[in-house]
Each structure stands twice: as C-alpha cells, then as structure tokens.
Amino acid sequence: MRDCESIRESIGRWLDGELDTAESESIRAHLASCEECRKAQQQLESIDQILKTTLLAEAQQIEFLPFWRGVQVRIAQKTPWHEQALEGLRATFTLSRAAWLVPAGIAVVLAILSLDSYIPGLREGRNSFASVESIDAYGRNVALLRENESKTTVIWLYEDQEEENATADEPAKSAPAF
C-alpha cells in the first residue's frame, strides 16, 4: 500500500496517462478512498482547466486571414530578392516537373550534339572535306585539289616523266584538266 506522498507524486503522471495499467489502477484505487489525495487531484485538474480555457478563449479570437497576412508580410520583407526570384523559379519548375524536364533537357542536348550522326552533311561546309595529313609520292609530282561544289578532296598523281616519254604514243591525257 503506497503512502499518500508517493501517490501525490504520481497523480500528475496518472492524469497525463503516462502510467502503466498496474500503477494506474493502484492510483485510482487509492483516490477512491483518500480525500486528501483526491483534493490534490482536483487542484491539478483545476489548474489545467483554468489555463486551458483562458488560453483557448484567447486563441479563438485570432482570425486566420489577418494572421496569415502577417506571415506573408514577413515572408515578403525578410526574404532577400534573389531568394524570392529563386522561390518563383521553384514554384514554376516544381520538383515533379523538373523530374521530367531535366532528363528531357539532357536528351534534347544530346540529340542536338549527335544530330550529324543522323543527318549526314549537317556539318557541311565545316568539316566535310577530307583533309590530307601527310603525303609521300616517292619523288613523283602530286597535286592536291579541293573541289568546293562537291566538297571533294582529290589527290592526283602525275605520271613519272620517263614513263610518260615511253608511252608517248598513247593518246590519253594523264592529268585532269583542273
């Protein structure tokens, strides 16, 4: 059997529902038979009651719209301009939208960069000529031609002069007319 002092130490927790079933039952049983402890319980309940009703009545006088306007004013006044701009962007490009927009954007960029793979000649005029990096004609005359209209690189090998003389009766030219 617990003494009254011990019971009064626990009344607060009992009222708060923080005791286990056994302890709770023991408090309840004691209160049923002890007037002094019951008075302590009632005092605690009165304090709670007064506080709650006082403050609840006050809070109920606070109307939402004026309160919300006060919050909005703080947001507008205290948020730096660049953060407000960022907020505006965030509101437009929400995470759900960004979740699709960003991969779509990456896909578009990649598609543009690889467009020339699908449309040959897209880089015409820029990179369509073959470029001759090195040439060794073993002493023979060689001409390099870049034909703009057809974007063609021509390497023309001229016949060896001795060979030309040896085949002098052949009528064909050995060199193009460019």
Binding site: A59, I62, F64, F67, W68, A91, T92, T94
Partner: peptide, 25 residues
C-alpha cells in the same frame, strides 16, 4: 517543398491558433 504556397497556407490555418496558445502561455 515543391513550392505550393496554398499548401503552406493550409498548414498555417491548421496550427496558427494552437501555436498562439502555447506561445501566449
């Protein structure tokens, strides 16, 4: 968190009196 101000307004409307009560206390 996605930038929906109306949702924040709804949260304020749910808790503004409770917060005021605690703070007033």
């Amino acid at each position: 968190q996605s930038g929906d101000m109306a949702s924040f307004q709804e949260l304020v409307s749910r808790y503004h009196q409770k917060v005021y009560m605690v703070v007033l206390g």
